[in-house]
Write a protein that binds this DNA or RNA. Structure first.
Lengths: 154, 154
DNA sequence: ATAATAGATTGTAATGATAACAACTTTATA
DNA sequence: TATAAAGTTGTTATCATTACAATCTATTAT
């Protein structure tokens, strides 16, 4: 399977580490920010702003969508969160961990992580460029949808 | 330099080849479609819909933006054109050639091509996935902006 | 050549994600 | 406790993209 970082045992330490990183950067963790960060850490589902909003709204009825946008911008500027846009109008957000690729299923829309050693990619002609970030996006059909398709063929 | 496919000598054959491909797929080339395709081939600048529209509007005053969208969708479905979305709300369009990476300058917004051997990338965990497309997106500062920054330091 | 039909183009209106902004609330500081 | 700074909220504005209906163009059959 391609999904990584899903072991629930790794969630808690990760969360603690992120909180520490924010403290070090003097970014105060309000209740809302804490919840957004916790959502990203625990779901690991590359959610959209709307997904985060709808889910957290249950626990925080006064929550505003603007706060989600603001918080995500703050977390991105702090380098803890990354926005990923795979040919979709809605940006998705992911905790910034060690380099990994993203696979988007064209059938169900799910975005999977997969292990990718970005240093192994042979590139040419970037000698004079200052590279800050490297992303790998794949598209295709995920195993789940592949088997669904096969069982629906008549 | 990272830019490829800019030799003007290669533009004409490329254009002819694309026209042939379209003919083979029974996609009629209207005047508008021809112009859009020609724009993509000759500029190789990863334009947005608006850029294409504004530029072609000069030559075709009756041109509609919807036609640009329609044409690009048609060309994408035919596999000749690819939409690329590097963390920007506006989709950019590129002629589909042999695999190459895209570099977006965070300062000036220009998107450069660079040579990338996507087969060399070491990935893991995609055995059960059907991969249809692979993309590599880099971010950073381009040489031009780098030198501008240096000369502006006081 | 002409009529019928399918497809392409156009302009307008609708949708939906994101940003701008001002008012209000909370937290930190003196 | 008073004051300032920052965070949150709701509303409004913006802008890319899509939906849709009307018009135009090209192709095919008569």
């Amino acid at each position: 399977m391609a999904i990584r970082y899903t072991g629930s045992d790794s969630v808690q330490p990760l969360f603690e580490d992120l909180k520490k990183q924010l403290a070090e950067k003097n970014i105060p963790l309000s209740y809302q920010r804490l919840k957004v960060l916790g959502y990203l850490v625990q779901s690991r589902s590359h959610p959209t702003v709307d997904m985060i909003y709808k889910d957290l709204k249950k626990a925080i009825p006064t929550l505003s969508k603007t706060t989600i946008y603001n918080t995500l911008r703050t977390l991105m500027q702090a380098g803890l969160v990354k926005g990923i846009s795979i040919e979709d109008n809605e940006t998705r957000y992911d905790i910034e961990l060690d380099s990994h690729g993203h696979f988007k299923c064209e059938s169900c829309g799910t975005i999977y992580n997969f292990s990718a050693n970005i240093d192994s990619l042979q590139v040419e002609g970037l000698d004079d460029f200052k590279v800050n970030d490297r992303n790998v996006y794949y598209n295709g059909i995920c195993p789940k949808c592949l088997s669904d398709m096969n069982s629906n063929v008549d």
